[in-house]
Design a protein around this nucleic acid. Structure first.
Lengths: 207, 207
DNA sequence: AATTGTGAATTGATTCACAGCT
DNA sequence: AGCTGTGAATCAATTCACAATT
């Protein structure tokens, strides 16, 4: 079974399970059933079991799952065992906000190590630990530090251009906040977070 | 065909098509084919046509779709014809950021009319047009102004409690940024935006 | 000639039902 | 007795293939 045979939705739910497990661990719970953990993740128990089955057998029949060892296994599968350096592209309104937000994420396995912006030394310079560098330094930085992940928070008009630069420099995954569909090569993964569309989508459901 | 027979994913893509159409309209383009519009939305042309087929026939064979009239139709279907008042729950780090971000959204059909926080008069008071009200005023405000949509940006520990209040007061749709699965009645729609999980998910795909 | 609209075929995801362990 | 693991069945979404229309 290769990584590509595993449904993206399954991988996504793994993170939900992981969160449930963290919560249980903090509570001192040792063991959890698929029913209980599935409820915390908002899915059906059979789905949770099927999801885990892609990666192996982690439970004990009649008993459930060990919170500690399942969460360890998920960490391994998800690749969050080591702290992952991430760069922030765009230090405007949204970018600044995200920086503040993600600064609390070291415990989740990610650290924003630098920000880049067309305008150097933006708002966020003061009181932040990350430097705000010019776009001209982007390709070099990514290559030199072997950065694999980027958060994209530039205006839609600049997005594709910036993406081309980081992709050429070796970026493998992009969390995209810009409201457009990015064109990237096969081997680059993009997750889109589109706040305007989420709101618009909700408005369909209110009568 | 009732609203519930239409796949959520289809509704979601409608917003992507709408965005493509806006872009074409701004460019002065009159007509667009399913191939071209689908590319802008990052989907296959047949999917776009199937999606539209849920709502009717809007194209002209041999020619394509009228940019103007299709976008008008989507506005109608999505329910974004009128400006929709939205409340922001939580005026902390992320909440403040979202407020700044969504302030640019009046053109998209949404307006944040008030923010609520446990701590009154938070950071964002100065320079913002929206009042920051205490949670005690929440239920009354929602009922009085007939608010239907809320953006939830409070800590996970407070989230369910706040949701219970707004749901009881009549809220119908929630854009949830808090990292947990909310328990809500059938008739309330929740869209989750989980930034930590999006990053974690990406880390699975980098080798 | 070009392009939509759509039934049929396919692919993918979820849920069921129960065998297999502890 | 309780709960996982999983093949089979079901349900849902996507894509194909082509007839219909301008």
């Amino acid at each position: 079974m290769t990584k590509l045979d595993i449904p993206r939705k399954t991988v996504y739910r793994l993170s939900l399970y992981q969160r449930g497990l963290q919560w249980l661990k903090a509570n001192g719970t040792q063991t959890v059933s698929s029913v209980a953990l599935a409820r915390a993740a908002g899915v059906k128990p059979t789905q949770l079991r099927k999801d885990l089955a892609y990666f192996g057998q982690f439970g004990t029949r009649g008993l459930g799952y060990s919170v500690e060892s399942l969460s360890q296994k998920l960490t391994e599968v998800l690749g969050t065992a080591r702290l992952q350096p991430v760069i922030l592209l765009g230090a405007g309104n949204l970018g600044t906000a995200l920086l503040g937000y993600y600064n609390g994420f070291a415990k989740e396995g990610f650290e924003i190590v630098a920000a880049f912006d067309a305008v150097q030394g933006m708002r966020l310079t003061s009181g932040r630990k990350q430097p705000v560098l010019p776009v001209s330094a982007l390709a070099g930085y990514v290559r030199e530090h072997g950065i694999k992940m980027a958060i994209l928070a530039v205006p839609a008009t600049a997005a594709q251009e910036v993406v081309n630069i980081v992709v050429a420099a070796g970026i493998q995954a992009i969390l995209n906040f810009a409201p457009l569909i990015l064109q990237v090569p096969e081997h680059v993964v993009v997750n889109n977070v589109d706040l305007a569309i989420e709101l618009e989508n909700l408005s369909y459901f209110i009568r």
